[in-house]
Design a protein around this nucleic acid. Sequence first.
DNA 1: CGTCGTACTATACACTGTACGTTAAGGAGG
DNA 2: CCTCCTTAACGTACAGTGTATAGTACGACG
Lengths: 220, 220
Amino acid sequence: MSDTKPRTPRNTLNPDLIVRTALDLMEAKGFHAFSLRGLAGELGVGPMALYTYFRNKDDLYDAIRDHLMALVPDVPPDLPWPDQVRSVCRGLRALMLQHPCLTQLLALRPLSGQETARVAEGLLGVLRASGLEPLAAARTHTTLFTYVLGATTWEIQMASERLDPDAWRRLRTSMESLSAHQFPTVVELAPELARTSGGDEQFNYGLDLLLAGLEVRKPS
Amino acid sequence: MSDTKPRTPRNTLNPDLIVRTALDLMEAKGFHAFSLRGLAGELGVGPMALYTYFRNKDDLYDAIRDHLMALVPDVPPDLPWPDQVRSVCRGLRALMLQHPCLTQLLALRPLSGQETARVAEGLLGVLRASGLEPLAAARTHTTLFTYVLGATTWEIQMASERLDPDAWRRLRTSMESLSAHQFPTVVELAPELARTSGGDEQFNYGLDLLLAGLEVRKPS
DNA sequence: CGTCGTACTATACACTGTACGTTAAGGAGG
DNA sequence: CCTCCTTAACGTACAGTGTATAGTACGACG
């Protein structure tokens, strides 16, 4: 009757499987609810088994982030450079919307990684080819990237707020309780502000603003 | 010998004291290390005492965020509108740099709050007065705000990375290990990219790009 | 067949947020 | 003055977290 517990067979785990399962879990339960114990449970394994493949939770985060960045599409060739920039930025945003945890992973521990470099290479190449000097290309690259990050972070945040009916109601009432005397413009533009809290149009508006500014600055 | 434990006197706590102490703790120990138990200890009080004033930790976060947003300076009058926009955006960024937890508070639970409305009112007023239509003003406001949020989040992240010598070394080596064959532009522009990972110049570059784009679009 | 490295497990520690029930301080009314 | 009632702060408990440390059994190799 020696109740030998069924040890999980020996080579069931590998980094890629862990990362993919972790990503699934994050998207199913949300970034905050994700835990190493939950992940281990999903894999049918003790929590400490994960430490064979990742030094700690942050290390796993990095791997997940790189796994996601690999999904950013390459720059499409044979297009005018502003359209190439638009394409990359929209692709990055689309990926962030599809995997909301990506914004949090980027905001939590920023960079490094082969795939991040690949994305940077594509955008930087376009900017250099468009005639920008090295420093201007780098500045523009960082500007574009941080705009996408901020805009999409905000958009996801607002969308998740809308999903929680309680939070959404509290937000509406707090908006409506703002006295039109104290904050006339906010109250007057409330419907417009609601429309600009996300969506393709809002994102493209800001992106085109940056591109328009860029063309003004260009010597050509 | 009844060892009556010295109960803390009755009205030592109040929301403002809690928020200020919490903010101090966050800045001293970092956003992640902040805990209700630590805060209660600092106040000389049991953890549950805080629940008299805040429904939960998120509620406290909201209060801290509003407390910080109150420190964003008002719009300076008697300036050309682009300079007014610059002033507000720079003021917001300066506050975020001074209190790095603000970016995380904004990214975690977005809006509502009297002080957030005050800041929005100032910026929206400037944009409307500059001649922008209601929808364009709202779009521009969101664009500017999300740019500041993204740029400053990134900047803080990179700065904190630089402070941790281990992470910084790992970053440098991973950068240098990128093959110049695979990522020629990234390798070539490495010094420029390092320079654009933060700082006033980088922030102002992106901000001026947005403003330049805005002037192109204006009918005047 | 014996040995060894390694993939996994077990246990334990110091934490976390917070639900629940209790206690005592302080002001109000008789 | 005494009593009552509201309420601020307490204590205990629970379910959960990441991870350090030590142990165990399996698979491959000599």
